[in-house]
Amino acid sequence: MSSEFQELIEFLHSDHPAVKQVALQSLVGYSQGHAEQFKANDYQGVKDLVATVMLGTPRVNVENALTILINLCDDRDILDMLASNSMFVAMIACEICDLENKQADLCCMLLANLAKDDHIVSIFDATKKLKNTEVFKSEKLIDSLMDCFVKGATGKLNLFSNFDYLAFFFADLSRFRRGRDYFVTEQPYDGLFPIQKLLPFTEFVDSRIRREGVASTIKNSLFDTDKHSKFVLDPEINLLPFIMLPLAGPEDLEDPEEIFDLPEELQLLTPDKRREEDLDIMCTHLESLLLLTTSREMREYMRTKSVYPIVRELHKNHDDQTIQERCDRVVQMLMRDEPKEAGDDAKVKEVDSDDEVVEVI
Rank of each mutant, 00 (worst) to 15 (best):
M1D: 14
S3R: 15
S3L: 14
Q6F: 13
Q6H: 13
I9D: 01
I9L: 06
I9H: 03
D15R: 09
K20H: 08
A23G: 02
A23Y: 00
L27K: 08
S31R: 04
Q32D: 10
Q32Y: 08
E36Y: 13
K39N: 07
N41R: 14
G45T: 10
L55Y: 09
G56P: 06
D75E: 04
R76T: 15
R76V: 14
R76L: 14
D80L: 12
F88G: 03
V89D: 02
E95N: 02
I96T: 11
D98Q: 12
D98Y: 11
L99G: 03
N101P: 00
K102A: 07
A104P: 02
D105H: 11
D105S: 12
L106T: 00
C107W: 04
A115L: 03
A126I: 05
K128Q: 12
T133M: 13
V135M: 13
E139Y: 12
E139S: 15
F149Y: 10
V150E: 05
K151W: 03
A153H: 09
N162L: 04
Y165T: 06
F168R: 01
F169N: 05
D172C: 09
D172V: 01
L173V: 04
S174Y: 02
F176P: 01
T185W: 07
P188C: 05
P188I: 06
L192I: 05
L192K: 06
F193H: 04
F193A: 01
Q196N: 07
L198I: 00
T202P: 07
D206I: 10
E212A: 00
H228L: 09
H228R: 11
K230S: 08
V232C: 10
L233D: 01
E236G: 07
L245A: 05
P246H: 06
L247A: 04
D252G: 02
D252P: 06
L253T: 12
E254W: 13
E257A: 14
D272K: 05
D280L: 13
I281G: 02
C283R: 10
T284S: 04
S288T: 06
S295R: 10
R296S: 10
E300S: 09
Y301V: 05
S306M: 08
V311F: 02
H315L: 14
K316V: 14
T322N: 13
I323Q: 00
R329K: 15
M333W: 15
D337S: 12
E338M: 11
E341W: 14
A342M: 14
A346N: 15
E356T: 13
V358M: 08
V358W: 08
E359S: 11
